[in-house]
Design a protein around this nucleic acid. Structure first.
Length: 263
DNA sequence: CTTTCAGCCTGGGCGC
DNA sequence: TGCGCCCAGGCTGAAA
């Protein structure tokens, strides 16, 4: 989403920011209006608009949008999209040319203004950085007995892995989601790192996963769902071995796995 | 420190 | 048609 928004809004001045949903609890519109969007990028799980303010060019403030479950940012130039209506429209970012609309059915999404880049950076390791290695993963796990699937969702350790990809990553590297994180040996840590990078890169390449209402910046659906091997495939045969895919609940989230492939 | 749980919201889908 | 339940790319705070 950040990748698609960037060329559409880069360099444009923010004319207005309308917060339509009080649950967003964002009241720093005055700080944002009038600044220029230098770039849009992803930091952790947030879509971040890097801002440049004419009166304080040395500051690099950042408007960060966390989409949570159902949030989406849709760019529109010219007339309003037909059919979409105002139903779940929560905020509008008015630009010189066009606007960015924030829709969020479940209203879990957040807007935040960071005053420094350091404030915007999450505590967890960025999994697509070169610095994410088996050695680094081992030191992050640091003896944790937490089930590896649950551990992968800890944003203060690794940032950016969500519930779909946690299951997909573990299936890809053949690791049982219930294994304590600390129990992984060196070859397993290595393959977990490479599967994490492989699955996340592929998902980004295909613009994410659509199974209900996810859309990208152009209001189009993602394309990764056809690559899902276990997520929401309970009861079907494993793509690799034919064994029935199982579903269980770990930490109030669904886990999907193949009991034969994943040890 | 850990794990579990309710809660935040809205809606789709299912069985009765 | 309605009702109750389960489920949903996330995360927080309280309790155990």
């Amino acid at each position: 989403m950040a990748r698609q928004l960037d060329p559409l809004v880069r360099g444009q001045q923010i004319g207005d920011l309308q917060i339509l949903d009080h649950l967003l609890a964002f009241n720093e519109q005055a700080e944002v209006i009038g600044s220029r969007i230098q770039a849009v990028r992803r930091i952790g799980k947030e879509v971040v608009f890097e801002l440049e303010r004419a009166d304080h060019p040395e500051d690099d403030w950042l408007l960060a949008v966390h989409l949570r479950m159902t949030g989406r940012l849709i760019h529109e130039s010219g007339r309003l999209a037909e059919g979409r209506g105002e139903r779940h429209l929560r905020a509008v970012l008015e630009l010189k040319r066009g606007r960015v609309l924030f829709y969020d059915m479940r209203r879990f999404g957040t807007f935040r203004l960071y005053r420094t880049l350091a404030d915007a950076l999450p505590a967890g390791q960025e999994p697509l950085d070169r610095s994410f290695t088996a050695t680094r993963l081992n030191s992050l796990i640091k003896g944790s007995n937490t089930a590896v699937k649950v551990w992968l969702l800890r944003q203060d350790r690794i940032c950016g892995i969500g519930n779909i990809y946690a299951s997909e990553i573990l299936h890809d590297c053949g690791i049982d989601p219930f294994r304590p994180a600390v129990s992984l040996n060196e070859p397993e840590l290595n393959s977990l790192v490479s599967s994490t990078k492989k699955i996340l890169r592929k998902a980004i390449r295909h613009c994410g996963t659509t199974f209900s209402d996810f859309q990208n910046a152009n209001g189009e659906v993602g394309g990764y769902q056809r690559f899902l091997r276990v997520y929401q495939h309970a009861g079907e045969g494993c793509h690799s071995c034919g064994t029935e895919i199982l579903r269980a609940v770990q930490a109030q989230r669904s886990t999907f796995w193949c009991p034969a492939c994943q040890r």
